[in-house]
């Protein structure tokens, strides 16, 4: 066993993880949001966005427009919700002071029942994670599969371990 070779392999692995992490953090910094890429989890925006679709977010806009598809998080729940802005009200003197009402295209009613603390509106500055700018279909389904299927995690880990064992130089 060549120790130097093994260490180089380990270092390479670390490099891969580090660069993936830096890529994510760099995207966050550019888009000004804590999750620049989200996977659609619910069918409330069908048929446009289905479960597993990937959305690219941008959060450097000062205010949202009606018709924008935004991602928001309700205080206390860590589930990002992808819905469309139905109404907006903003101060003319300070355009960053804005409240929004949202609705899923595929839902019958607006989102008031979803908001925290019996609120009637979302706050653009506090609640909005980002505005959807780009779309890529179905690629995110693997994350749903891994997080919702208890065997999938083991299968993935097993495959990685096996390939690192078998894949000698």
């Amino acid at each position: 066993m060549n120790l130097r070779l093994e260490l180089t392999k380990l270092l390479n692995l670390c490099f891969v993880f580090a660069s993936a992490y830096m890529f994510w953090e760099g995207l966050s910094l550019v888009a000004n949001t804590h999750s620049p890429i989200v996977v659609v989890l619910s069918g409330s925006m069908e048929p446009a966005f289905q479960r597993g679709d990937i959305l690219f977010l941008w959060n450097r806009n000062e205010q949202s427009k009606v018709g924008d598809v935004v991602v928001y998080e309700v205080a206390g729940k860590n589930i990002p919700i992808v819905h469309r802005v139905l109404r907006e009200h903003h101060s003319i003197a300070d355009p960053s002071k804005q409240v929004l009402l949202t609705k899923g295209d595929n839902n019958a009613g607006n989102d008031i029942p979803l908001y925290a603390n019996r609120k009637l509106y979302l706050n653009k500055q506090k609640d909005i994670v980002g505005t959807v700018k780009g779309y890529f279909p179905q690629l995110g389904y693997i994350t749903i599969w891994v997080s919702e299927n208890k065997y999938a995690k083991f299968a993935l880990l097993g495959f990685l371990a096996l390939s690192s064992l078998v894949g000698g130089e």
């Binding site: 009606v66 109404r87 003319i92």
Partner: peptide, 22 residues
Amino acid sequence: QVFTYLTAEYENVKHTRQNEVT
């Protein structure tokens, strides 16, 4: 798909707030 929407823009009485509704 195309999502089409009819909106209305208006200002409040004091002209301090801009609003747009669907």
